[in-house]
Each structure stands twice: as C-alpha cells, then as structure tokens.
C-alpha cells in the first residue's frame, strides 16, 4: 500500500495531465505582450482558478519503493537506502559495489 504522500503525488500527476493543455493556452495568452492588457489579465485570473494539483511544480519524484521524498537517486527512482538494498541484492543491472 503506497503512503498518503505517494497517493497525493499520483493525484497531482493525473491533475497535471488532465489540465495541461488548458493551462498552456491560458499561459500563452497571459504572457503574450502583443495582446491587450485586459485579455491578458483575464487569462491570468483564469490561471489562478486552477487547483493546487494541476500545477506541474506540485509533482515530486518520490522513491518508487518506499515513497521517501528526499535522497532519491533520479536514475533509478529509488531513495539512497532502497538503492543500496537493491544494488546489493543484484537487482539493478550494471550496478556493483566499488572495490579497489
């Protein structure tokens, strides 16, 4: 069972996907200096009505195995300890313990 934070993150990811195109359209209008200020202002107000879980910045890459938010090694999507466990168990191809 994933932790509440992971579930929240999954919710944010789905929200971003569902609202991405509409948000982009409003962003285009709001940031377009060739349009009239009134139109741009309205577009910005519309952007502000989008919920928290529609912004791509609310998405965080958490550990796939443990759900930990910090110390995640992005190449593997694992937190540092889960990475160590899996690497020692030989589950990560091409990863072996340094020895010289």
């Amino acid at each position: 069972m994933p932790s509440a934070r992971v579930i929240r993150d999954i919710k944010a990811r789905h929200g971003v996907r569902a609202n991405e195109i509409a948000r982009r359209a409003y962003l285009f209008v709001a940031r377009n200096e060739t349009l009239s200020p009134q139109v741009r202002h309205h577009a910005q107000l519309q952007l502000n009505t989008f919920g928290r879980y529609t912004r791509p910045t609310t998405v965080k890459n958490r550990c796939v195995e443990s759900g930990r938010g910090r110390g995640v090694i992005s190449e593997f999507g694992l937190s540092r300890f889960q990475f160590r466990l899996k690497a020692l168990a030989g589950e990560l191809p091409g990863v072996n313990k340094a020895s010289w």
Partner: peptide, 17 residues
C-alpha cells in the same frame, strides 16, 4: 514576449503519470 514558448514546449503530463 509572444508566449510562444508555452506552446512550443513538450507536454509533460503523459510522462509524469
């Protein structure tokens, strides 16, 4: 600023999910 970069950028949602 024409805002073209918001249209040119790739969509990130499908990969995020």
């Amino acid at each position: 600023r024409t805002g073209a970069k918001y249209l040119r950028r790739r969509l990130r949602g499908p990969a995020m999910v």
